[in-house]
Design a protein around this nucleic acid. Structure first.
Length: 159
DNA sequence: ATTTACAATATGA
DNA sequence: TCATATTGTAAAT
């Protein structure tokens, strides 16, 4: 199930599976991913939540409500990372090391980076709020410019 | 099954 | 500044 999300910054594309939001793409950079299912009505409800959440984030606020995610592709470690990312409030940034420590493996900083890289739902799962240890930017797969843009939008404090 | 490469970091030279 | 060990995954051998 593929649905567009028009925003002031372009049209995002959300992909829904039968379990929830499975993937989110930046404007103009759609990854080919076809989810065919019959749960159209349910996907519409999720889509409302997704759209509202993205609008909040682009405005620099915390989304009040999120759609369910389909993390079938993720490992336990990755889910721990993503869950931790969701706890970062708007306008705040954590380093890879801090996230690694928060999930119980202080030395798995590199693994955290890998988990962020395989994050299927950018923006809502705020992988852009994860930065290198000394305020460096680190990377951002696919849409590098968005990291700075989103952080600037929130006025994030880069320690 | 083993090696390599990542969006990292701390340490030692 | 550069080399290396460390950690979890995925992809390539």
């Amino acid at each position: 199930m593929k649905m567009a999300i028009p925003t002031a910054d372009g049209e995002f594309t959300a992909h829904y599976s039968e379990h929830g939001l499975a993937q989110l793409d930046f404007p103009g950079d759609q990854r080919p991913n076809v989810h065919d299912n019959q749960h159209v009505a349910q996907a519409r409800e999720w889509h409302v939540l997704t759209t509202r959440a993205i609008e909040e984030i682009l405005a620099g606020n915390d989304p009040a409500e999120l759609p369910p995610f389909d993390l079938s592709r993720g490992t336990d470690f990755q889910r721990r990372v993503w869950d931790e990312l969701l706890r970062i409030p708007a306008g705040h940034a954590k380093s890879y090391g801090e996230v690694a420590e928060a999930i119980g493996s202080p030395k798995a900083t590199r693994a955290v980076g890998a988990a962020c890289g395989s994050n299927p739902i950018p923006v809502i799962i705020p992988c852009h709020r994860v930065i290198a240890a000394n305020g460096k930017r680190g990377g951002y797969s696919g849409a590098a410019g968005w990291k700075e843009k989103l952080l600037a939008c929130e006025g994030a404090q880069l320690l």
